[in-house]
């Protein structure tokens, strides 16, 4: 059903692979909408407990496919109709989303990685906030996420200078969670995703909610929402399993419920 991406669920992990390798996985309107649909499908699929987004071939995603746009277009409307709905769907998703950044993530490809909860990078990968080189501003929520990750000063530098950020530097900056060698990258991503997929999924979804609340609510409002979140978590089977396993000195087996 998808043309520009490949979607596959295995062992609790939804693998969403951008699949236009000859175009370095550049975005078309169709790819925006397929990513959105795939994330929605994964959100609703009870079997899925983790989502991984990665790229086929040597790039993660090179940003907007410039051959897919004509210069009479309204740049704002393209964001409203294509990119906005995609990143909103990702932000609504209450399962962990991992960006497995196998190669270059440029422009909106960088934004896509920023909209994920984790960024695992191959040593060959790099980020580049390329928008400034064509006289545009970072979009698809880019600076919203970037300021939270690296602070306003560093975000301004990355956005205004548009310099390439190699994998190691991305980890130093707090942009990426882990860097792996190119040879072991695929295995490491699988291990990481498998680990997430056996953790208490509902609680992780509630953590995502709390993180969002933390940036929008006042402290008192936040504490009320936190109490509600803990009440919900306290009712999950995974909470009971975690406590039982602790008492019985065994490893917990979480169902994600």
């Amino acid at each position: 059903m998808f043309e520009t991406i490949h979607y596959d669920v295995r062992d609790g992990v939804a693998w969403l692979t951008l699949n236009r390798p000859d175009k370095l996985n550049a975005f078309t309107a169709r790819m925006n909408s397929e990513i959105k649909d795939a994330v929605k499908t994964a959100s609703r699929d009870e079997e899925v407990r983790t989502i991984v987004i990665t790229g086929a071939g040597r790039a993660f995603c090179s940003g907007q496919d410039l051959s897919d746009v004509d210069e009479t277009m309204d740049h704002g409307d393209i964001l409203r109709s294509n990119y906005g709905p995609m990143v909103k769907e990702m932000r609504r998703c209450e399962k962990p989303i991992v960006a497995a950044v196998n190669g270059v993530a440029a422009g909106a490809g960088f934004s896509l990685a920023l909209a994920c909860d984790f960024r695992l990078v191959s040593e060959n990968a790099s980020f580049i906030n390329a928008f400034i080189h064509v006289g545009l501003i970072p979009d698809s929520g880019n600076l919203y996420f970037l300021t939270k990750l690296v602070g306003e000063a560093k975000a301004a530098e990355l956005a205004m200078l548009g310099e390439k950020i190699p994998a190691e530097r991305a980890v130093e900056l707090g942009l990426a969670n882990r860097v792996f060698s190119a040879e072991t990258f695929t295995d490491e991503v699988h291990t990481f995703a498998a680990r997430l997929a056996t953790m208490p999924t509902k609680a992780m979804g509630l953590i995502k909610r709390s993180l969002k609340d933390a940036s929008t609510l006042s402290f008192d409002e936040y504490l009320e929402r936190e109490a509600q979140g803990q009440r919900i978590a306290g009712l999950t089977a995974d909470h009971r399993e975690g406590v039982d396993a602790f008492m019985q000195k065994r490893k917990p087996v979480f169902q994600g419920k």
Binding site: R209, Q228, G229, R231, I232, L235
Partner: peptide, 10 residues
């Protein structure tokens, strides 16, 4: 506004 899971409880 409350968490959806707790709408009735709250």
């Amino acid at each position: 506004i409350v968490s959806p899971e707790l709408l009735m409880e709250e």
